[in-house]
């Protein structure tokens, strides 16, 4: 078992009186695919939003541990530093591409920081310094690599908004990978994909983990994806962790079955007592 890359400790998120996530602790381990699952409204996306700086958590600590031993407390970083220095990238449930920009430009925006420093704040770019030209070529090469992996090479100069749904999802993952993340968070990557596209996605995610050593954290509803690719599953219900372990073990957990399928009225109290509500 490898060390934890992301530790979430006692994370609580309140919106006014509503407690979306309550005292949640879990770990995602380096080089593994960790899935966060749970019924609708369980607080999965809220957890993601806390990790990626969208929300400031009400309580708790989120630690990102890099391979070289550096650590970052994500809840204290401004949003753009999370991608820049903590090396955490994410995708969204509802796709958020820059739809007016081309497919290639979407991937280049993700490489903003290396390009910016290479171009000396664009001033070097204006003066045509060779270091900038080199950085730009490297950036385009990296973009081309990911376009190839997603099968989008021939669409590179089309506006991203013109792609159909499946390719847009793939492009979002490619764009996140262009920031060279150590941890990639995917919010329902398989949502809206047909079974064939779903298989392609599984392959892409496995490839990312194997070839790039990127750890993955994903929210998913599609159980075929979760059971197929994840090494470790965390189950949430009403903002509380109800199960945590290997996919096979989680699938057999009575609490998980109860949360997903519901239980008879007569058993509600018993289950609630078990779950700790």
């Amino acid at each position: 078992m490898s060390e934890a890359i992301l530790s979430v400790e006692h994370l609580t998120m309140r919106f006014g009186g509503l407690i979306a996530v309550n005292d949640l602790s879990f770990e995602a381990r380096r080089g593994e695919i960790t899935a966060v699952i749970g019924p609708n409204g369980a607080g999965k996306t809220t957890v993601f939003n806390c990790i990626t700086g969208f929300y400031k958590p009400s309580q708790g600590r989120i630690t990102m541990r890099h391979a070289d031993g550096r650590t970052h407390l994500l809840e204290r970083l401004p949003d753009f530093r999370i991608a820049q220095v903590a090396k955490v990238a994410r995708t969204f449930q509802n796709i958020r591409l820059f739809s007016g920009m081309t497919v290639l430009e979407n991937l280049l925006v993700a490489q903003h920081n290396p390009l910016m420093s290479a171009s000396g704040w664009s001033i070097g770019g204006i003066l045509g310094l060779p270091s900038y030209g080199r950085a730009e070529r490297q950036a385009i090469e990296k973009a081309a690599y990911w376009l190839d992996k997603c099968g989008l090479t021939d669409r590179a100069d089309d506006p991203a908004g013109d792609l159909s749904y499946g390719p847009q999802r793939a492009l979002e993952i490619a764009r996140a990978m262009c920031t060279e993340p150590e941890l990639l968070c995917l919010d329902e990557p398989a949502a809206g994909l047909n079974p064939r596209e779903s298989l392609v996605l599984n392959d892409l995610l496995r490839f990312i983990r194997k070839e790039h050593g990127t750890s993955l954290l994903l929210i998913e509803h599609d159980m075929s994806v979760v059971m197929e690719i994840s090494d470790h599953v965390v189950v949430l219900d009403y903002g509380i962790k109800i199960s945590d372990g290997a996919p096979a073990a989680v699938r057999e957990d009575p609490k998980v079955i109860a949360a997903y399928l519901g239980v008879d009225d007569s058993e509600v109290e018993k289950v609630e007592a078990e779950v700790g509500l």
Partner: peptide
Amino acid sequence: PLGRAQRACEQDRKMAALL
């Protein structure tokens, strides 16, 4: 890259920050 960042912020500031 500066111009690209500007256009990206124009479309979705939050997403640009996350990149």
